[in-house]
């Protein structure tokens, strides 16, 4: 019965979204069929298009996993964006400081360092929350601004490439790159890293005693305290892992795509990751699926813009509406479904 209600709710959401897209497409004066066909062709029509979906999904999966791990323990991490940048700083510093490292070691160390940098960025609000009860929501957001501007300062000063007038770091050594998977597409091994991280998070959260403690703390921290489960330790730990995963996302953007530190490596991945985690119901598998979906939405809308002249903003509008509908689903559709069933 509940399944039925759920399914109906999601169908209703899909219908509403479709309706809104049609209206928007008509409003900008485009042809609906052309728009939709170019949307689908953008995603499935070419090898390149499809690989782009995976490329964009990579940071979303990693950061989304991070947000999900935090949510499970009751740590609301809005700071994935900043943590992504910290990961990017980590690999840049490593690549420039030790350019002679062999590739395997370099990439391994970069991931580790990115994890630690991102983790530290989120463990600070984690400690403030666990020890003093200060809202992590505000603190993580504030740290986003600090991280963004920290990158701005770094690429103009210590990490600046002296041979160019632009604010960016020198190219990193080739050893600091993820292998390409499907040349000539941009797909890189970061996608595999993301999938591996999803498996690791699943095992950690659902199979280990530590993950059990983290979940329990997220659901009832008082009972955990009474049972002797250290609430403080678990919040701090989950904050660290949460930020660390987002940090790895930042490492991947540099190692897989940009190969140097620049401003704006993330078009808001850290914020979209919150949506991804929400859509994926904080479950690793859900996060992977949601990240692919969100990424496909974006790639499709790009193609729609090219072929049918529909602005890509439509993708953002759809995503925003989707989140509102999902959050309001229970109260919106619960009663209608009941009505339908009773008649």
């Amino acid at each position: 019965m509940n399944r039925f209600r759920d399914a109906l709710g999601f169908l209703a959401i899909a219908a509403i979204l479709l309706l809104i897209s049609v209206l928007l497409i008509l409003a900008v004066g485009s042809d609906v069929t052309k728009a939709f066909s170019s949307f689908l062709r953008g995603i499935f029509g070419s090898f390149y298009g499809f690989s782009e979906v995976l490329v964009r999904a990579t940071p979303l999966i990693l950061a989304g996993l991070g947000v999900a791990v935090g949510f499970r323990t009751g740590f609301v991490n809005i700071g994935a964006e900043g943590q992504i940048y910290l990961g990017a700083i980590a690999i840049t510093v490593l690549g420039l400081a030790a350019p002679g490292l062999p590739p395997v070691l370099m990439v391994g160390l970069a991931i580790l360092l990115g994890f630690v940098f991102g983790g530290i960025w989120s463990v600070v609000p984690g400690i403030l929350k666990a020890r003093f009860g200060i809202s992590e929501v505000i603190n993580t957001i504030m740290l986003n601004y600090i991280a963004l501007n920290l990158v701005g300062v770094l690429v103009r000063t210590w990490l600046k490439d002296p041979s160019y007038p632009y604010p960016m770091s020198p190219m990193l050594p080739a050893a600091a790159s993820y292998p390409e998977l499907l040349s000539p597409t941009r797909l890189h091994a970061g996608f595999l890293v993301a999938l591996a991280a999803a498996v690791a998070v699943y095992v950690l959260v659902f199979r280990t005693p530590t993950g059990f403690e983290m979940r329990a703390v997220g659901l009832n921290s008082r009972a955990c305290h009474c049972a002797g489960i250290p609430v403080y330790k678990n919040i701090v730990l989950s904050a660290f892992i949460s930020g660390g995963l987002a940090g790895i996302a930042g490492v991947g953007e540099i190692a897989g795509l940009h190969h140097r530190l620049i401003e704006g490596i993330s078009p808001g991945y850290g914020y979209i990751a919150i949506i991804v985690s929400l859509l994926g119901q904080n479950h690793p598998l859900g996060v992977v699926v949601a990240a692919l979906g969100v990424s496909a939405l974006h790639v499709g809308s790009l193609s729609m813009q090219r072929a049918a002249g529909v602005p890509t903003s439509i993708a953002s509008i759809i995503m925003g509406t989707l989140v509102v509908l999902i959050l309001a689903r229970k109260s919106l559709f619960g009663s209608t479904v009941k009505l339908v069933r009773e008649n």
């Binding site: 005693p209 659901l219 009832n220 008082r222 009972a223 955990c224 009474c226 049972a227 489960i229």
Partner: peptide, 21 residues
């Protein structure tokens, strides 16, 4: 409800609160 149980977890998990280590 507040001190002893995690209401959204199942019977196995609630027993585990003490024995998971």
């Amino acid at each position: 409800h507040h001190d002893s149980l995690v209401l959204d977890m199942d019977l196995m998990d609630n027993l585990l609160l003490k024995t998971h280590t």
